[in-house]
C-alpha cells in the first residue's frame, strides 16, 4: 500500500514542478513583452569586437 502512496506523492511533486515551471515562464514572457513596449524606440546597444579577432575573420573571408 505504501508503494502507491509513494507514487502519489511523487506524482504530486512532478505536477508541482511542471506547474511551477509553466508559471515562471508565463510570467517571464509577459514581463519581456511588457518591457518591449517601452524599449521599442531605443537604439540597440553598441558592440565592439576584439580587433585582432575581427582581422582574423576578415582574413579568412579573403
Amino acid at each position: 500500500m505504501w508503494f502507491y502512496e509513494l507514487g502519489a506523492i511523487l506524482l504530486v511533486l512532478i505536477a508541482v514542478t511542471i506547474v511551477g515551471n509553466l508559471w515562471f515562464h508565463t510570467v517571464e514572457s509577459l514581463l519581456e513583452r511588457f518591457k518591449g513596449l517601452f524599449s521599442r524606440r531605443k537604439a540597440p546597444p553598441a558592440w565592439h569586437e576584439l580587433e585582432q579577432e575581427q582581422e582574423e575573420r576578415d582574413n579568412d573571408r579573403h
Binding site: V16, G20, N21, F24, V27, E28, L31
Partner: peptide
Amino acid sequence: SRFNYGFVHGSK
C-alpha cells in the same frame, strides 16, 4: 531583481 515570484526562485 526579477526573482521575487514563482516557484522556481533563483533557478534562472
